[in-house]
Design a protein around this nucleic acid. Structure first.
Lengths: 248, 248
DNA sequence: CTCCACTGGGTATGTTGTACGCAGAAACAA
DNA sequence: TTGTTTCTGCGTACAACATACCCAGTGGAG
């Protein structure tokens, strides 16, 4: 299915000309793979397992996809399509970016395995590209393209890194096969050892004094998000709706 | 080497009591693995390959490390030890955080495979924990622990997400085995197709009008970093050295 | 009706992490 | 010193993986 000048799966559309009608489709295969990865992790989504899920033989998948890596690219783009940005951009950029951040994080939590997928320009499919269009459209009326790129890289960096931490922990818990209580009980001795060693005073300060880690992960997320959006606000020249800053 | 209540490799220190003197060591094995991963990617650092690198039999490694995943944890902590933060915290928090950001990014570029490693609390080794101590120490005199956590998560999010994008591209190039020119020539048709489709006006605007993507990656990185630090500055109550803002 | 580009998929191969077992070495107990 | 125990290095073996190759069957093009 590949030849020497292969670039990406997006340059190799599904084609059907002569011969028997295909029994399956890329979308069907990708959806089955996502289902398995959601439930049991990306490493469980093997070619054989995916094929079994749709009732096909293992080697049949290679009629639709050059290899497993390309299939994962398809899966990732499917996920990007789940992000619902209807009504964006609106008149309220801050609300738009908040909604975007929440949607991205929610998608990550639904599909924790996305943290293991490498994404770069040539792997961007239609859904990812559409997302870029919509999100760049939010600040496009207010700032230059260059400024827009910088600000979105800060926002995306924050959102993805928080989401990454959350799903890393969630995946570890799932992989362990333990309940959350059991897992915490297992991890506790290590934390205890660090605290008692006395070598890590600031880590100790975080563990003992900080209220942030005791908030719900939702609240933690929004706390940082608010700061990021405040930062973006200062970069926007003339805003009629100057947002409410609160300093405790 | 593992039993039912296994937590992490940091709870299982290297021990030597009875029996023959070990011929190798965890550190030696981890260093060899890092060397291979740097040169050929993490997937090339197989147990057999690492063992061969130090002149051992494949199964000998399991006398030092419970499994490959734990070895990768050791490798990651070795990398954290490369980050040189001598003289931090100083009196100038902005210089400190800039240096930290640059050091982290430089480390990522030296070891691109770090992007594929999942890190979470119970995988944090001594070097990672020391890094946390040092970096939390920078703003500790100026803000509350909670504020500090939020601000550092924004900074780390930015730094790691930019570094991640850079090393993803670099790894793709390496994996292709092509020169940069050849690689760009390969990718070009896809970009061209996107531009010509007319479906992605903002993507087109970025490709044609933006100057940001034409800067060196160093300059791109520092541009966003400056903004992040400006954002942090607004969260610090009384600063004697109010930094120079420039608005074009 | 003939052809052949296509399909589904069985079999086979090379590579991986790692379980198991064994021979030898070093510390301990006598 | 002399067992005895507990460690070491590591060869062999195995299950799981992605996937190359092959072949039989199918259905639109001529």
């Amino acid at each position: 299915m590949t030849d020497e000048a292969y670039v990406s799966i997006w340059m190799r559309p599904e084609q059907t000309s002569r011969g028997p009608k295909p029994a399956y489709s890329r979308a069907q295969i990708a959806r089955a793979a996502v289902r398995i990865a959601d439930a049991e992790g990306l490493e469980a989504a093997t070619m054989r397992r995916i094929a079994a899920e749709i009732g096909a033989g293992a080697m049949s998948l290679y009629r639709y996809v050059p290899g497993r890596d390309d299939l994962i690219v398809l899966m990732a783009d499917l996920l990007m399509g789940e992000i619902n940005l209807r009504g964006i951009p609106s008149v309220d950029w801050r609300a738009d970016l908040t909604r975007y951040a929440e949607e991205v994080r929610a998608m990550w939590l639904r599909h924790p395995w996305i943290a293991t997928v490498h994404r770069s320009l040539h792997s961007y499919g239609p859904n990812q590209l559409l997302l870029i269009e919509q999100i760049m459209g939010v600040l496009d009326p207010h700032v230059s393209v260059d400024e827009n790129l910088v600000l979105m890289s800060i926002l995306n960096g924050y959102v993805e890194s928080v989401a990454r931490d959350e799903v890393t922990a969630a995946e570890e818990l799932r992989r362990s096969g333990l309940t959350e209580q059991q897992w915490l009980a297992r991890t506790h001795p290590y934390v205890q050892q660090l605290l008692e060693s006395g070598d890590y005073p600031l880590f100790t300060k975080i563990a003992l004094e900080a209220r942030h880690p005791r908030l719900t992960s939702d609240a933690q997320f929004h706390q940082g998000l608010t700061r990021v959006l405040d930062c973006i606000a200062t970069a926007i020249p003339t805003t009629e709706s100057q947002n409410n800053h609160e300093k405790p």
